[in-house]
Design a binder for these strands. Structure first.
Lengths: 136, 136
DNA sequence: TATTAATCTACTAATTCTATAGGATAAATG
DNA sequence: CATTTATCCTATAGAATTAGTAGATTAATA
């Protein structure tokens, strides 16, 4: 299941991408438009800022704004930050690889074999979609 | 992340599929060979029996055995039983559809749009793989 | 300086996951 | 028919994760 964090994060990014200008948008505005708990959204936007997707401005007229062009924002990167590894098991992860403690031989593992295919299929989708592709 | 339940279930199914004869295999034997907690595996095998993947026999010489030919066991069905819906959000699920309570218009939802593609990609993998494909 | 809005820390409630315990039931064997 | 063997079933408990809340702080603007 997709976490609410990811769901809300994607909606917020899409909302910001759909704004005409590059003026900062307040958390409260995004939360209202997208039906998201404001306090929860607050922490999500913060993490998106710390990972380089958003910029922010404090005080009056402040808010969040996209740093890059939506066409340059790959879903692989967004998903890894919001949802975590794209792989369903660490032993097939490109960016978060870990050996299974219970599995003596990776190459002989049926789960490993299946999850490799699943990983590749998901990567293909995320690599071929940018924030701009979510816009309409 | 793939749950341990699914991981263990897949390993058990593969183990049973790799057996030469159709003689029942005891839980203890599978648990030992695959490094799985026996009691946990017990409940997993039980659910696989109740959903028509396995048969069982009690008493001495008893155990679990595959009911179908591994070639006939689709990963779509296995995954749905062990891991639940293949879709990451209910609003794109074929078998477990539910409307999002926060989303006024599905067709305008960026998350919906992306997750449709993800679902299709995953379905393609699971539909094209049977238990027999995990064997080597 | 007053107002506005993001920042940060800490905490809580609910849910799900991963088991474990213990007895009931059924089948085979001698 | 009694004993052994192994599945069946219910209940429960600890750990981890998720989702959300509270409240004080910091920075920018007018």
């Amino acid at each position: 299941m997709l976490s609410k964090k990811t769901k809300y994060g994607l909606k917020a990014l899409t909302f910001l991408a759909s704004q005409k200008g590059k003026d900062p948008v307040q958390i409260a505005e995004i939360a209202k438009q997208e039906n998201i708990s404001q306090k929860f959204l607050e922490s999500i936007l913060l993490s998106l800022r710390k990972t380089g997707f958003l910029g922010s401005k404090k005080g009056k007229g402040g808010g969040y704004y996209l740093i890059k062009d939506p066409k340059e924002v790959l879903m692989t990167d967004v998903m890894r930050v919001l949802e975590g590894p794209i792989s369903m098991v660490p032993c097939v992860s490109l960016n978060f690889y870990e050996k299974c403690d219970d599995c003596p031989d990776e190459d002989a593992c049926s789960v490993h074999k299946l999850m490799l295919k699943v990983r590749d299929a998901n990567l293909a989708v995320y690599r071929n979609n940018t924030l701009a592709d979510l816009l309409l």
